[in-house]
Design a binder for these strands. Sequence first.
DNA 1: GAATGAATTGAACGTTTGTTTTATTATTTA
DNA 2: TAAATAATAAAACAAACGTTCAATTCATTC
Lengths: 214, 214
Amino acid sequence: MARTVGSDGERTQAATRDAAAALIARHGYEAMSMRQLAAEVGVQAAALYRYFPTKQDLLYSLMRDHMDGLIESWKAARPAALGPAARLEHFVANHIAFHVARRHSTHVSNMELRSLSRERLSQVLKLRTAYEKELRRILRDGVEDGAFRIDDVALTAMAIIQMITGVIVWFRPDERLSVEEVTRNYLTMTMRLVGANAKQEERHVRDRAEFRAG
Amino acid sequence: MARTVGSDGERTQAATRDAAAALIARHGYEAMSMRQLAAEVGVQAAALYRYFPTKQDLLYSLMRDHMDGLIESWKAARPAALGPAARLEHFVANHIAFHVARRHSTHVSNMELRSLSRERLSQVLKLRTAYEKELRRILRDGVEDGAFRIDDVALTAMAIIQMITGVIVWFRPDERLSVEEVTRNYLTMTMRLVGANAKQEERHVRDRAEFRAG
DNA sequence: GAATGAATTGAACGTTTGTTTTATTATTTA
DNA sequence: TAAATAATAAAACAAACGTTCAATTCATTC
């Protein structure tokens, strides 16, 4: 036996990525064997090495794509000319939407950093830091123009990110709450968390209406 | 070679637990080998099997102890006769103090649930649920007596737990902020998150003073 | 000081691991 | 239709894995 009928490199590679994300999310990177992954894809283990030189290359590729996608998604969603409150709202909404839509790779990116080599770890962390910087910027702007009351911007940024990323730990889309309801709740909690006052909340609601109007 | 001079079962077992928590926290359960663990303890791998029948027994033991300790710690710290706001404050403070003091086993308990067998997983989850129930109770009480403004108690409880457990992801005790400062920040954020109003905040400050006085 | 039990070593077991190599077949190109 | 290339299977590799077992030495008790 060798090449099979209907075999297609691109399809195999894509199927490998999907299956790997799912398996690693469920069992962990170390617990997933290349043979197990290959079986899921419907191929022999050796075939995977045509697309990913090593197991760790596969992991890095998943993480890298996840982070690139996250940053890209925020670049596309972020409003340029709005006030801090409205920008924070967009940030939270985009973050939740992105992560809920990518539960598997989110789990991988959050849990398997320790399986990366030094250089690759620092590459991924660099992207992560850049992303977090966007949030800190929003918070700082909000403090400066009086929209937020925050004691420590860096600490608050970490708290918010932990909170809104944690959605995927308990949230199941087919249960009691919809993504929209969950997002609305987290938006409310976030705005309170940063001490956005009522007056400010009114203002950002107005901003949002203007933004959506065009 | 066989029994070594000064060897002591209890000491070896305790050292094994500590080393295992540290190694699993750093490299993951699957990535830690029994030989690696034994080397850390200063013993041969076979010796570990005198104290833990299998590798998974060791993991379960760590998690079990962690959860038991957490619940025990809350039982000892929780104030009986105070209002929701004061009780919430105690909950958050105790949670952060406990987890910061036990970074390693916290990491293990949060990351390695998937390596447990079905029955053991459900045992640990049962404890976890019981603990979370305590928080939900506080939140519900606060909603009922008007101290908190909360849309969804279950969702808010998860958000708070994710947020305050996340401390150990970024916090290092030897850096910019002390545990006390960090805790104070998280307390403020939590109280705002649940919509505790100023009037209520005053009240719980008074409660706290009374609690500490008596 | 002999007997008993506790603590550990060292070697070995069968599996499984990530990965490489070689051969073979399917598809595409000329 | 022949040649070239892409995609895979099958088998094999050494290394590492969790675990077991018998032998051996330290510590304690009588």
